[in-house]
């Protein structure tokens, strides 16, 4: 198991206000290749902080994150190189509004990987085909629906050919009728063997697609296990009461 660990997180802590707020209070877990880790928990439990620490959008207070043979939580690490291999999908899409869909997708591969315009666009078009949005390549983000925006955001991240994709509540900002189309894309990715860490309130998705469910509360992992372990026979009181509220 340890051999395929893609990311090894050890005793990760993130404190705010000189330790008055402990958003993360010692997280230890491994993320294995091909695994879909679904992170659930009440609001303020530290789910986003954990996810954003994995690619150092939040700077950890202490602890280590081993990725690609290096502790990326240490100072003086060139995080930009590592981030190219860790795609991120945000709740609010964060597409670049001044660029077409195609430009959104090709700018990073062209500038960072030195791909030619033709190669980058060919790759982008293939990905757009896969999510059924090839006809929107020349559209601007403001001309797209929420579900379309999020699908574009996912393929934008995929253009960099990352080893892992991080999702922070990818469907929370969507109208209910658009949640399905985004979850479908994520399911397809999971089937194709993509390693994913997904913070979500979609328990159906967690149960169906997750290979492991992690329940966080107060900055720590309270319980983790397979979806059926977690949903059918939760052990801790906190998880039981959380599930009672959300299911």
């Amino acid at each position: 198991m340890k051999d395929n660990a893609l990311i090894e997180v050890k005793d990760l802590k993130k404190h705010y206000k000189n330790g008055a707020v402990k958003a993360l209070d010692g997280i230890t877990t491994d993320i294995t290749k091909g695994e879909v880790v679904v992170v659930i928990g009440p609001s303020g439990s530290g789910k986003s902080t954990f996810l954003r620490s994995l690619n150092l959008l939040e700077l950890p207070t202490s602890g280590s994150i081993m990725f690609d043979g290096e502790d990326i939580a240490a100072p003086h690490v060139n995080i930009n190189k590592h981030r190219q291999k860790m795609g991120m999908v945000f709740q609010h899409f964060n597409l670049f509004p001044n660029m077409t869909v195609l430009k959104n997708m090709t700018i990073a591969p062209m500038k960072l990987k030195g791909l030619s315009k033709e190669d980058a666009e060919k790759k982008a078009m293939e990905l757009l085909e896969r999510v059924g949005l090839a006809d929107r390549a020349e559209a601007y983000p403001s001309q797209l629906s929420g579900g379309q925006k999020q699908r574009i955001a996912i393929v934008r991240a995929l253009c960099m050919e990352p080893d892992v994709l991080l999702f922070d509540e990818p469907t929370s900002a969507l109208d209910p009728e658009m949640v399905g189309e985004v979850l479908d894309v994520m399911k397809k990715l999971a089937k194709a063997g993509m390693t994913m860490v997904v913070v979500t309130h979609e328990m159906g998705f967690a149960r169906e697609v997750g290979s492991r469910v992690v329940f966080m509360a107060d900055g720590v992992i309270v319980e983790e296990g397979t979806p059926s372990e977690m949903f059918d026979s939760p052990k801790s009181e906190r998880l039981k009461s959380f599930l009672a509220k959300v299911l």
Partner: peptide, 24 residues
């Protein structure tokens, strides 16, 4: 979020400014 999207793709601070933020 624009800034974070740029950084999460692997752009460094200056590249994110130049390619993503400043044009806007």
């Amino acid at each position: 979020g624009q800034f974070e999207a740029g950084r999460s793709l692997g752009f460094n601070y200056i590249q994110t400014m130049m390619y993503i933020v400043i044009p806007q």
